[in-house]
Design a protein around this nucleic acid. Sequence first.
DNA 1: TTATAAACAGAACGTTCGGTCTTTTACAAG
DNA 2: CTTGTAAAAGACCGAACGTTCTGTTTATAA
Lengths: 225, 225
Amino acid sequence: MQSQITPEADDSPPTGNDLRVARTKARIITAVIACLDEVGYSETSINRVQTTAGVSRGALTHHFPSKEAMMVETLERLLDPVRGGTHAPDAIGQATGRGDGIAADMARLWSKVLNTRPGRALVEILVAARTDAALSARIQPSLTAYNDQINVNIHSLYQSPTGDADDIQVLWTICRTFLRGLHLQARFEDNPKQTQRLLERFAHIMEPHMTARSQTKAERHEKPV
Amino acid sequence: MQSQITPEADDSPPTGNDLRVARTKARIITAVIACLDEVGYSETSINRVQTTAGVSRGALTHHFPSKEAMMVETLERLLDPVRGGTHAPDAIGQATGRGDGIAADMARLWSKVLNTRPGRALVEILVAARTDAALSARIQPSLTAYNDQINVNIHSLYQSPTGDADDIQVLWTICRTFLRGLHLQARFEDNPKQTQRLLERFAHIMEPHMTARSQTKAERHEKPV
DNA sequence: TTATAAACAGAACGTTCGGTCTTTTACAAG
DNA sequence: CTTGTAAAAGACCGAACGTTCTGTTTATAA
């Protein structure tokens, strides 16, 4: 909130204090994501984040007044890629719609987006929010916006063979529900082969019910509402 | 471990001290299940269980030397119904295989077994065990036995139209994975209608891939290995 | 150069956690 | 009734939690 000398849009590379702040916050959020992935939400204590990030307790508290705020901001960062936000390209768009089949789409979505460190960290926050009313209330708007965005994108990526517009949303929600279940399961068994097999079989079952739209990425993004 | 006057099988109604012990343990385990369902694993502290059960800290510690032991025994109790254990009849067997379609089976399985207080409590323990190595190690044998039992039962309930014996296991695992995902989702949205819709649509998709075997319940249980 | 505010450091706070301990109560055997 | 043993009660412990606090450093504007 300083060094606002240039009134032009803030696309200039940050310098001085802004750079320092950006670096510190990035270190902290990266540490939060790493902790979430490695030890889960309940073990992601402020002390552990502080140690992992290599910052002082004061720096941490200065940028994030509470653990909840820290988690909310981490979630925002994790949601950015799938929303095509500022920090990363549209991950789902890049993983899907290449025209080589829904099974291939889903395999890429799993390996390139969901079963990654950020993907697993995101699930950890969502799982924790189920039973944490305060956290849940705080992240609900972001999640709603995220869901809406998903539903928009899915309409431009796939369509139901019957032409039912609502059905494709239901079908994609089924896919997401399955993938969520797969996430929890993947933590237990250290057998990626079995996970892969389930994923392929499921995609093969879903394939006849969801046909891909063939169009360019630009077309996909032209109707953002 | 007392009043063993009668060497006959312990089917006699417990009296005296045994009754007191049974009641206290039952109160505690019931309280654990209630807490897990209502506030989740992380908030299910010993203090909360103690208050909910209406017993003292000493009584709790006397029967369960550690929180982990308390959770393990609760899990055993929760697994009993699906294993056809001593405390309850075979819940899955009762919910499925009535010959009125897989969609009906799955709807019953959801409403009568999974989306109940014990069902939700069970999921809470499983979710917690993902990131709790000690708990995970402790419950792994029970879960493996549980999985084996499920796989046995599923072979006598359904078969693949192609006759592939392995495939029916994969298909049922897909169903369980989906239902697990549905469990997590159901906590967020308080819209049972939408959950029901997803469930019905999913079951309809799976139906052609899983045909029911028509046989009696006795036949189903005759090959327990 | 100096004033000001943000960024950072780290000690200390009160609370709650799971676990241990001693004491009292209830039951069953002699 | 007396006595031995297990159940139940509740005080208590150290550790870890998230938060709050004061002090110090750094960067920027006047």
